Simulated scan of single mutants.
Amino acid sequence: MKNYKKLTSVLSILLVAVLLLSLAGCQAAGSTPAAQTSAGQTTGTKTVTDLVGNQVKIKNNIERIAIIPIPWASVAFAVDGSGKKIVGMHPSAMESYQNCILKTVAPEMAAANSTFVDNSFNVNYEEIAKLKPDLAVIWDYQPEVGKKLAELGIPSVAIKYGTLQDVQNGIKLLGEILNKQDRAAALIKWQNDVINSLQSKTKELTSKDKTKVLYLRDKQLQVGAGQSINKLMIESVGGENVADKVSGSWTKVSMEQVMAWNPDVIILSDFSDIVPEDLYKNKLPGQDWSSIQAVKNQKVYKAPMGIYRWDAPCVETPLMMEWIGKVIHPEMFANLDLRNDLRTFYQQFFNYKLTDAELDQILNSKLNPGLKI
Rank of each mutant, 00 (worst) to 15 (best):
T211C: 06
T211E: 01
T211Q: 08
T211L: 05
K212A: 12
K212C: 04
K212S: 12
V213N: 12
V213L: 08
V213I: 12
L214Y: 12
L214W: 08
L214N: 15
Y215C: 09
R217D: 05
R217F: 11
R217C: 07
D218T: 08
K219Y: 09
K219Q: 15
L221N: 08
Q222I: 00
V223H: 10
V223M: 01
G224L: 03
G224D: 05
A225P: 08
A225L: 05
G226Q: 02
Q227A: 15
Q227D: 15
Q227R: 13
Q227V: 00
S228C: 06
S228N: 02
S228M: 07
S228K: 06
S228P: 10
S228E: 05
I229W: 10
I229D: 09
N230S: 12
N230Y: 05
N230M: 13
N230G: 08
K231I: 02
K231E: 02
L232P: 03
M233I: 12
M233G: 09
M233P: 07
I234M: 05
I234W: 04
I234A: 01
I234C: 13
E235P: 10
E235C: 09
E235A: 12
S236L: 07
S236A: 10
S236P: 10
S236G: 11
S236T: 13
V237L: 10
V237A: 03
G239R: 01
E240Y: 09
E240Q: 14
E240I: 04
N241A: 04
N241S: 00
V242F: 09
A243N: 08
A243C: 04
A243I: 09
A243T: 06
A243L: 02
D244H: 11
D244W: 03
K245V: 09
K245H: 13
V246N: 04
V246R: 00
S247A: 15
G248Y: 02
G248D: 08
S249V: 00
S249M: 10
W250S: 11
W250T: 07
W250D: 05
W250L: 12
T251D: 14
K252Q: 14
K252L: 00
K252F: 01
V253R: 10
V253S: 01
V253L: 02
S254I: 10
S254T: 15
S254D: 09
M255Y: 08
Q257D: 02
V258H: 03
V258N: 01
M259S: 14
A260P: 08
A260E: 14
A260R: 01
W261T: 02
W261Q: 00
N262P: 05
V265T: 05
V265H: 00
I266M: 14
I266A: 12
I267R: 06
I267Q: 12
I267D: 13
I267N: 07
L268G: 10
L268A: 13
L268W: 09
S269W: 03
D270G: 14
D270H: 11
F271G: 12
F271C: 06
F271T: 13
S272A: 04
S272M: 00
I274Q: 11
V275E: 14
V275F: 04
V275R: 15
P276T: 04
D278Q: 03
D278R: 07
D278C: 11
D278N: 14
L279I: 07
Y280M: 07
Y280R: 03
K281V: 00
K281Q: 05
K281S: 10
K281E: 06
N282D: 02
N282E: 01
K283W: 00
K283L: 04
K283H: 05
L284G: 14
P285W: 01
G286N: 02
G286E: 01
G286D: 01
